[in-house]
Amino acid sequence: MQVIDRVELYYVKTPLPAPHAPSWIPGTIREHVSMCIVRFVTEDGIEGWSGFPAAGRERAGLGDLLAGLFLGQDAEDIDTMAERIQIMAAGGNFNWWIEPAFWDIKAKAAGLPLYKLLGGTDDRIRLYASSGELRAPADRREEAEARLSEGFDTMKIRVHDFDEAVDIEHISDIATYMQGRMKISVDCNQAFRLTQNGDAPLWSLDRAKRFVDAAADVGLAWVEEPLFGEWHEEMAQLATHARVPVAGGELHVMGYRELARMLAMGCYDIYQPDAMWAGGIGQCLKVAALCREKGLKFTPHCWSNGFGFIVNAHVFAASGFAGEALFEYPLSPPGWIPEARDLIFAQPFLHKEGWFHMPDAPGLGFEIDQRNLETYGRCFFRGSRKSVHWMPEALSDL
C-alpha cells in the first residue's frame, strides 16, 4: 500500500523559441507553455507527477480539494482514486489529468515502466508528425518535406477556414504533392470551439460530408473531428457516409461510458481519447479493449504538453495497437518543438527517425528538472496530513 502523505501544486510557465499560433484557437499566439503540475508523495517517499495545460491561474483553488480527497488514501487503489476524481467532477472540476500521477506511483512501487505494468511489450512506437498551425500550401509542402526527411511517413495537417473551398484546396494540394511518398491526414478541430480570442467556423453535417468526400478523393489517411463533439447521431451518419476513416474522441470528459456509447452508435472508425481529459489511463485502456473487440482502431490524442505526450504514449504502448497504428507526435517548428515543450523535464521526449523509444525507468519514466522547475515555476499549494499551506503570492511574478 502506498499511502499519500503530501501533495504539492505548481504553476509553471516556460518560454517557446518562437510564437506559436494553434489552429484550434483562432486569434491566439502562444509564447509560453503554461501548466499546472501536481506532485503526490507517499509515506515511502515515492513521487507521482502529472501536469495539465493552464490558460493562467485558473487552478489556484485546487489544493483544498486534493488535500481533502487524496491525503491518507492508497495511491495504488486506482478505482478509488478515479471515483474521487469523479467527485471533483460533480462539483464542476473535470481533472482526469490527476489520475496518471497515481499510476506513476503504482508503477514505481512495482519497479516497472508503466506500459509494462499494464501488459505492454512494445518498447518503441511508430509516430506520425502532427502539425499544429495553419499554413499556406507552399509552406505546407516545405513542412511535409522536412518531416519526411526526419523519418516520418505520415503527417497530420490542420484546416480551419470559414470557406470550405479553402479547406478542400489545402488537403488536395498537399495530398497530391506528397502522393506516393507520405500519407496525409487532417484534423478539422470541430469537436469544440475555442472562440475567446477570435471567431471560428462551425461545420454542418452537409459540409462535413462534402469535406470527407474530397478527402477520400485525394486519398487521405483519416479525417479527424469533423463535427461538434456532442453531435453523436450526426457523427454516426457521417461515418456511414464517409469513404475515408473518421477519427476523434480526445476531449470526451465523461470518459469510457460516453465513448462506449459512441462506439456502439458507430461514430468513429478510429478512437483517440486523451487520458488527460477523457477518463484517465484506466478508462482509455477500456476503450482500447472495446475497439479491439469491435474491430476498430485506437490511438490516443496527446497535443497538450510533455506530460500529455508521455502519459498517452504509455496508454498506446499498453493498448495492443502499437504494432498496427501510429501515435501522435506534436511538432510545429519553429515555435512548438519538444525541446521547448519539455523544458520542465530532465530530457525532452525526442523521436528517432519517426519512432519513439519508450522509457525504461519505473513509472512514467521521466525526471523533473528541478532547476527549471524553480526557475519557471512556483509552488502555490503544499499540503500534508498535518497541515496545508497556501502561497498565492508565489504566482504574482509569473
Rank of each mutant, 00 (worst) to 15 (best):
100 P>I: 15
51 G>L: 00
40 F>C: 01
80 T>I: 13
45 G>K: 08
104 D>A: 15
21 A>G: 05
71 L>P: 14
49 W>G: 06
38 V>E: 02
18 A>P: 10
73 Q>Y: 00
99 E>I: 12
32 H>D: 12
12 V>F: 00
63 G>L: 05
19 P>I: 06
66 L>S: 06
19 P>V: 06
71 L>E: 01
76 E>S: 12
79 D>Q: 07
98 I>V: 14
92 G>V: 08
55 A>I: 08
10 Y>L: 01
87 I>R: 08
8 E>F: 00
107 A>Q: 05
103 W>I: 13
18 A>Y: 10
103 W>H: 15
78 I>W: 05
72 G>E: 00
55 A>V: 11
107 A>T: 02
67 A>W: 00
110 A>P: 04
63 G>M: 04
63 G>V: 06
58 E>G: 09
78 I>H: 09
107 A>M: 06
48 G>K: 02
29 I>T: 15
103 W>E: 04
91 G>H: 07
10 Y>K: 00
38 V>F: 00
49 W>S: 05
64 D>S: 10
17 P>G: 07
59 R>Y: 14
12 V>N: 01
11 Y>P: 01
85 I>C: 03
74 D>F: 03
97 W>K: 01
59 R>W: 12
58 E>T: 02
83 E>L: 12
64 D>R: 07
55 A>D: 06
28 T>L: 11
112 L>V: 02
83 E>R: 09
9 L>K: 03
101 A>P: 01
110 A>D: 04
75 A>T: 09
11 Y>H: 13
98 I>P: 08
8 E>S: 14
59 R>S: 13
49 W>K: 03
61 G>D: 13
13 K>H: 10
64 D>K: 05
78 I>E: 11
93 N>A: 09
101 A>I: 09
56 G>A: 14
86 Q>F: 08
89 A>E: 10
96 W>A: 15
37 I>D: 04
25 I>M: 09
61 G>V: 09
82 A>S: 11
44 D>V: 06
11 Y>K: 04
93 N>S: 07
32 H>A: 12
61 G>R: 11
22 P>F: 05
104 D>I: 15
61 G>I: 07
53 P>H: 05
56 G>T: 10
73 Q>A: 08
95 N>V: 14
62 L>G: 09
26 P>G: 12
28 T>V: 13
82 A>G: 04
92 G>D: 04
59 R>H: 14
34 S>A: 14
93 N>W: 03
99 E>V: 11
84 R>L: 07
55 A>H: 06
61 G>E: 11
46 I>E: 02
93 N>K: 06
21 A>P: 11
40 F>W: 00
13 K>M: 13
62 L>A: 12
44 D>Q: 14
26 P>D: 09
81 M>A: 10
62 L>K: 01
28 T>D: 03
36 C>P: 06
36 C>S: 13
97 W>Q: 01
90 A>S: 05
92 G>A: 05
29 I>L: 10
42 T>L: 07
51 G>N: 04
60 A>T: 11
6 R>C: 09
78 I>F: 08
104 D>K: 15
99 E>A: 12
62 L>W: 10
69 L>C: 03
9 L>Q: 02
13 K>R: 14
94 F>W: 11
69 L>E: 04
107 A>H: 03
47 E>M: 11
109 A>F: 02
